[in-house]
Nucleic acid binder design. Structure first.
Ligand SMILES: [Zn+2]
Ligand SMILES: [Zn+2]
Ligand SMILES: [Zn+2]
Ligand SMILES: [Zn+2]
Length: 454
DNA sequence: TGTAACGTCTCT
DNA sequence: AGAGACGTTACA
């Protein structure tokens, strides 16, 4: 009997399993939810056999034993550096036909798969996407579900039911991102010339030269030829992206480059554009939104950004205490997910709040949500125990001495910048230092600039 | 092995 | 459509 390798011995499709890293996975069982009450350990009959609702994984992963149906090998993204290579050699499970493949192994250069952002390693494979023959571009998956092609209803059920369950959990209108067909080859090492020969300079040398160019100059180079276009798209050249105005075309350009540092300060970006971006930049660590509208910044209330470490919301018009509460609380629509507050997985956090019309109320909320030191020992990323949380603030006229009381309970805090908070006194800062001296010694680096003394 | 719980089937 | 049941998988 010859079974496809992406099925188990009994022919069932491969199950996903919890990621063990997300906020939900790291929680312990609540003991109170419907499924906990069913568990034998909580005195139930144990018939339902479901995960605690509080622990339902945000991003279930393919099992370690999963392999590509074509080449029978596992995912190889960890061994690759380039973002495109990573994608081509990671395992992708089709939500319609359930096949698990390396996109590279499909070799369908003319068709494109549609990546599903809701689950890791999930897409509609080029075959199924082609068979579906739906219009491309943004489509609400919730709405299109009812007229999905009936590929295999009689033979074997597809995973769109895995997905449906998951969507119920995470029911947010998700746009889908059509990706380019996987490139056939890695970027060429040499520049082909007209006479059939190649240029003497190798790619890595060119890359060193490109490194000296501004982004504007790189854009000019990208128009020179296919090879330069490919080379100039290298993510190493685009780790930091600055924009002073945003257009839809630029947004897709940002996605292709997957920056970790994104500066959208003082731009006219809209809420829709920002959430579109955040949903597609899982690796984003630094996000600068100073001078943007609260309408735009509020996109952060509904999108999670797991690796974000620095958030700059200085001078965001309309960001007051109530808005800060929304920003710090988990998404309101029952979706599991991380808020952008400091309780996210980030262990070094830099939050810039200057110029906001916030009061002590916001600071109390922020301090409440700071990771407390005892919880940090569970850090899944293996981040060292000395990792610190770093706060910078300033120029909030309505913040008073009272806020310093909240900071006393945040053992992980590293720096508090109150220099421009007119209502905060030097005396209060000195009292803060004195009271903290037993547990966490602080010093005054400048007037009203508190810094951990270690 | 044992424990957790995924995916799907059945019943309402 | 939704809830419950359960065989079977994932993983230690
Ligand atoms: Zn529970
Ligand atoms: Zn998880
Ligand atoms: Zn393969
Ligand atoms: Zn498929």
């Amino acid at each position: 009997v010859c079974l496809p390798s992406n099925r188990t011995s009994s022919g069932a499709r491969r199950r996903r399993t919890r990621c063990r890293r997300c906020e939900a996975c790291l929680r312990s069982e609540c003991g109170e939810c419907h499924f906990c009450k069913d568990m034998k350990k909580f005195g139930g009959p144990g018939r339902m056999k479901q995960s605690c609702i509080m622990r339902q994984c945000i991003a279930p992963v393919l099992p370690h034993t999963a392999v590509c149906v074509v080449c029978k090998e596992a995912g190889k993204e960890d061994t690759l550096e380039d973002e495109e290579d990573k994608f081509n050699f990671m395992l992708m499970e089709c939500s319609i036909c359930n096949e698990i493949v390396h996109p590279h192994c499909l070799k369908m250069s003319d068709a494109s798969g549609v990546v599903n952002d809701e689950l890791p390693n999930c897409w509609e494979c080029p075959k199924c996407n082609h068979a579906g023959k739906r219009g491309k571009g943004s489509t609400c998956v919730c709405k299109t579900k009812s007229h999905e092609p009936d590929v295999s209803s009689s033979s074997s059920s597809s995973s769109s039911a895995d997905l449906h369950r998951y969507r119920r959990l995470k029911c947010v209108q998700m746009e889908r991102h059509v990706i380019r067909p996987p490139p056939i080859s890695p970027p060429p090492d040499r520049l082909p010339l007209k006479d059939g020969k190649t240029h003497v300079i190798q790619r890595e040398v060119w890359m060193k030269i490109f490194n000296y160019l501004s982004h504007q100059e790189l854009c000019v180079c990208m128009r020179v030829c296919k090879t330069w276009n490919r080379w100039c798209c290298d993510k190493r050249l685009w780790t930091k992206i600055d924009l002073n105005s945003t257009t839809p075309l630029m947004l897709s350009g940002i996605i292709r480059r997957q920056p970790v540092f994104l500066d959208l300060s003082w731009t006219n970006i809209s809420k829709k554009q920002l959430s579109w971006l955040i949903n597609r930049l899982p690796g984003l660590r630094v996000l600068k939104l100073s001078g943007c509208s609260w309408a735009a910044v509020s996109a952060l209330c509904t999108s999670s950004c797991p690796l974000l470490r620095t958030l700059d919301v200085q001078w965001v018009e309309g960001l007051k205490d109530a808005q800060m509460r929304d920003l710090l609380s988990p998404p309101t629509d029952n979706r599991p997910g991380q808020s952008l507050g400091p309780q996210s997985s980030a262990y070094e956090t830099d939050l810039r709040l200057a110029g906001l019309d916030i009061t002590d109320t916001s600071l109390r909320l922020i301090c409440q949500q700071m990771p407390n030191p005892s919880r940090r020992t569970r850090n899944p990323g293996g981040c060292s125990a000395t990792a610190t949380t770093w706060w910078t603030r300033g120029l909030c006229n309505r913040v008073t001495d009272h806020s310093l009381n909240f900071f006393k309970r945040c053992g992980s805090i590293c720096q508090i910048d109150l220099r421009y908070c007119k209502q905060v006194t030097k005396t209060a800062c000195e009292r803060f230092i004195a009271e903290m001296s037993v547990s966490v010694p602080f010093k005054l680096k400048e007037d009203k600039l508190l810094q951990k003394a270690s």
